[in-house]
Design a protein around this nucleic acid. Structure first.
Lengths: 336, 336
DNA sequence: GTATACTATGTAAACGCTTACATTTTTGGG
DNA sequence: CCCAAAAATGTAAGCGTTTACATAGTATAC
């Protein structure tokens, strides 16, 4: 491992000068700079990141906590965060929180331990109070897919309520009035918001929400399946169903077909998130698109702004979902 | 930021002693340890990871380079690597190589810069020579999903040839003899191996490989679609098709249906990788399962073994794929 | 040619920890 | 009780940078 010291020796300059060309800072005489650079290249010198961090009190690393490392929803966000941050010369330390309060806290502690310059948190289970408290600490935090009053400029969030509203309205506009709903876990804030939007749309169309048409799933495919079976067994008829994410919608779709229903003729269906699997089902799943890539990128930019002084970056804090029509929705006719 | 120094002051012991309890090393008198621990807790002391790394010349971080951060194939591996390493108290720095030689090299350099203790590389484009050279450097490297002669104990690989063989044999056993093949990019080693296995199976059944039944895709869904259309337009009849991954198979499936074919009655189909989308298609896609989770975990264990002295860990270097039968394959009858 | 004001470079003290080695304390056998 | 050996603790020198501050060098203006 060649050090800055050996470079300074070989180039006949002081440590400070070498350090200066390293940080292309200050004014170093061009000739000196060239000489140092040449020696560095020749010696195959690589700066020691750890030593730099210690001396400068900045690790150029940002900690990311997301629920899971796999899956289309999180994966896309992650990819965009990493790309944006890497372009800025930062690196990314990732951990998975598994939507569990203890693990989320544990991971945050861990990231703090790692001297991250900033944290991007996609957390479900930790309380607002905890986050507000954390926010008073020395390291900037950005909240992804969550809105907390009092730190709004550090939140990148999605208008889930509006998404829920759009999904229902889309079905209502096609004439449907008996609309089932397969939700995510009620305690997850985005689940709750989506359902709220759903109810608002029903309201707007003068339809009263029927609790018997609600099934609480867990955002995974089998629970969509279970939801449809449960609803069908209930004996209450419905002509459409909105699922709070695409995985459950895919399960619901297949289960409905298993029960002899033709989609969308007998039953219209819409998912949420517009992940890639919507294009693999048959018929292709209509869904609510969320700009996950943009949200990830924006979270990264917030960090750049808050911690690395990039005040020039344009930040967008709240994102709106939109409807994507595919083949799983048909207008209500007399024959459903 | 409270430091070890303040702890030592408050506890009335020396720096070294505090450091010792931190590393629960050596023999510290239990009473002393308790006292120090108590002071730490009271002061809210957190060790400075950067300083520890500099002093100990070990960063407890391992660099991961994978082609993409999203997608089921890479995501699962990544999740398992992270989990295994985190349990061992290490953290993970990730970057994406995008299957591009320049970016792969650039990212490796970057990770080296970051003082990673070891590297887990899932690379496609970089040459064997480069990897062998890299392997002579001071930092241990593990190759994921790749086999390089001369560093076999550091490779976690999949027997793609056998997978290709299995896929074809499955179809052959159902009586199919005209089998089309939609491959990945030829230059990707796993693509190539899968095709080789395919040919071996044909051979074994006395079927000669027909180049006109081969279409080279790019592992993405639209190319599966394009492949089917191309093959169908060619006018050469075939009763089955194997696709070198599931995404292309899903595309092929849908395109075939678009051309009026019923799956599997008119055309049998098998994918590769057994990612989650196989359960979302209709009919559900048969595939070749790869133990991606285990492979990821094993890569992490190799690092633990090679760099962190965990010689007790059992390592498995080569993995075998297996057939997963679902609904997209039917025996050849006279009526296809 | 000298004073003035920069610009370029050097010096040395951190940064917060680990660790080899030195020193002190404890333990137990005789 | 004393002494040697073992156990516990302390001392201080790094680890490879950054960065105030000090110093040397170089124009510019008169």
């Amino acid at each position: 491992m060649t050090t800055i010291y050996e470079v300074s020796e070989a180039a006949g300059v002081s440590l400070a000068t070498v350090s200066r060309v390293l940080n292309n800072s200050d004014k170093v005489k061009p000739a000196t700079r060239e000489k140092v650079l040449a020696v560095m290249a020749q010696l195959g010198y690589r700066p020691n990141f750890i030593a730099q961090s210690l001396a400068s009190n900045r690790s150029n690393s940002v900690g990311i906590l997301i629920p899971e490392l796999y899956g289309p929803f999180f994966g896309v966000m992650l990819a965009n965060i990493e790309e944006e941050l890497r372009e800025a010369g930062k690196h990314v330390i990732i951990t998975a929180g598994h939507s569990d309060a203890d693990r989320e806290v544990e991971n945050i502690e861990f990231l703090l331990t790692r001297q991250c310059d900033a944290l991007i948190l996609h957390v479900y289970s930790v309380t607002d109070e905890y986050l507000l408290k954390l926010n008073e600490g020395p390291v900037p935090i950005i909240l992804l897919n969550r809105f907390v009053e009092g730190m709004s400029s550090q939140c990148i969030s999605l208008d889930n309520e509006h998404g829920g509203y759009l999904a229902a309205r889309t079905l209502l506009e096609q004439g449907h009035r008996s609309i089932a709903y397969i939700s995510g876990p009620r305690w997850k804030l985005d689940s709750y918001a989506r359902l709220t939007g759903h109810k608002r749309a029903l309201d707007e169309f003068g339809v009263t929400f029927n609790d018997d048409l609600l099934y609480e799933g867990n955002f995974e495919e089998p629970s969509g399946r279970a939801g449809i079976n449960h609803l069908l067994d209930n004996g209450i008829s419905f002509t459409a169903v909105v699922c709070a994410n695409d995985e459950m919608a895919a399960g619901a779709l297949d289960a409905a077909r298993g029960r002899g229903l033709t989609i969308p003729h007998d039953l219209s269906l819409i998912g949420f998130d517009n992940v890639s699997l919507t294009r693999y089902t048959h018929p292709k799943l209509s869904s609510i698109d969320c700009p996950l890539d943009e949200m990830g990128r924006m979270a990264a930019r917030c960090v750049l702004r808050d911690e690395y002084g990039r005040s020039d970056l344009e930040i967008h804090n709240r994102y709106q979902p939109s409807v994507v029509m595919r083949e799983s929705i048909a207008p209500l006719t007399g024959t459903n």
